Simulated assay, not measured.
Amino acid sequence: MRVVVLGGTEFIGRRVVERLVGRHDEVVVVHRGRTEPEDLPDCGHLHVDRRDFAEVADRVRGFAPDAVVDSYALTRADADSVLPYLPDVPLVLLSSVDVYRVWELLLADDDTPLPAPVTEDAPLRRGRFPYRGQGTGLDDYDKLDVEPAYLARGGTVLRLGMVYGRHDQQRREEFVLRRVRAGRARIPVGAGDALITRLHVDDVAGAVLAALDRPESARGELFNLGEAVTYPVRGWLRLILDAAGHDAELVRVPDERVPDDLWLTRRLAQHVLVDSGKAGRLLGWRPADPATAVARSVRWHLDHPPADAPADFTADDRALAG
């Protein structure tokens, strides 16, 4: 199979490229050229800013791809800049469960009851641009502006839970691992009872391949992707600690004393529990066991620690002292 991957040099897109090349597909990665890891598998590259995609459209069509995977369409402009120039082949778009109403309520600390788990026909956000004004550079981000255009082309939309694993720039486990590296024996946490569906990056890549391999089943469909079993946040912390071989005590403290970087352990207004059974039924996709997946991620991040990890645990000491 010949596949064009838009994005593809960082985290999720990178893992998709690795899996495609690993099974001997021919791949061309279209990206800005700002990040090109030396250990990226051998494949073709086209360097262009997404807004200038028209400049390389002839070369993309000349490659004669059998499919296109878009790993980094964040805004309406991102979709509009590429879709008119893509050949009429199967498309796979990586999206997010942040399109759902439950995510909006979580961000708003609104405990309005909603059915769980979240299926593909669950209510969507009523508001737009969920991260505008937060200083993250995502003011115009909204997957609700991206998905419809891909679906109109018969594309497949994969709505991802909280993705973690090797090369994760957000380092999802770091709030625990920095305490592991410091040898902290007691960690102050809140209730830690929220259910938030996570997903290892290897399972995302596996779902992309499954969608490419079953185009008749995937065409024009939305799929939630998440782990088969979701541990509460406190259980997830314990999985991380166990994988790191660190027997720290998780000490329950009032939410107002929980350190800021452990905010996820506080009592949250909503669970974001995702049902990904449709992907299993139509695509034959099965995620890995969460304990195994977390252990694989933790080992990689322990071997590749950040250079700028905070070493100040004053907030921990103050919380533990009461």
Score class of each variant (00 low, 15 high):
D111S: 09
V92E: 07
L107F: 02
D111P: 01
P65Q: 02
A73M: 00
V92I: 07
L91I: 08
L83C: 12
R61P: 00
A67F: 08
V102I: 15
V69E: 06
P90Y: 06
W103V: 12
D78N: 05
D80G: 02
P113W: 02
V60C: 10
L107T: 07
L106N: 04
D109H: 12
L94T: 09
L107E: 15
A67I: 05
A64K: 04
L91G: 15
L74Y: 15
L106A: 11
S71G: 13
D110W: 01
D78M: 08
V82Y: 00
A64P: 09
A108V: 07
V69A: 10
L94V: 05
A77M: 14
V99N: 01
A108P: 09
L106E: 08
V89S: 10
D98M: 03
D78K: 09
P84N: 08
Y85A: 12
A73R: 00
P90E: 14
Y85F: 14
A67T: 12
L94P: 05
L106Q: 10
V69R: 06
Y85D: 12
S95H: 11
L94F: 01
A64H: 14
R76H: 08
V97P: 00
D70Q: 04
S81P: 12
L74Q: 08
T75Y: 06
D110T: 03
P84S: 06
D109V: 11
L114A: 12
P90M: 10
D111L: 04
D78C: 07
L93S: 09
Y100S: 07
V89A: 15
D88A: 15
V97M: 04
L114M: 10
L114S: 01
A77Q: 12
A67L: 07
D88G: 12
T112P: 11
R76N: 07
L106C: 12
S71A: 14
S96F: 03
A67Q: 10
V69F: 06
D88Q: 13
P87V: 06
L107R: 15
A73V: 02
D70R: 01
L91T: 06
L91H: 11
D70M: 06
V82G: 07
S81N: 13
P87W: 00
A64T: 13
L93P: 13
S71Q: 02
V68R: 09
F63C: 05
T112I: 14
P87G: 05
Y72K: 13
L91K: 08
D109P: 09
D98L: 14
D78L: 02
D109W: 03
D80Q: 15
T112R: 07
L94D: 01
D110M: 15
V99G: 01
A67D: 14
L93E: 10
V99K: 05
V89R: 11
E104R: 12
L114F: 14
P65G: 08
D88F: 10
L94Y: 04
L93V: 06
S71P: 09
L114W: 09
V99T: 00
Y85S: 11
D110L: 06
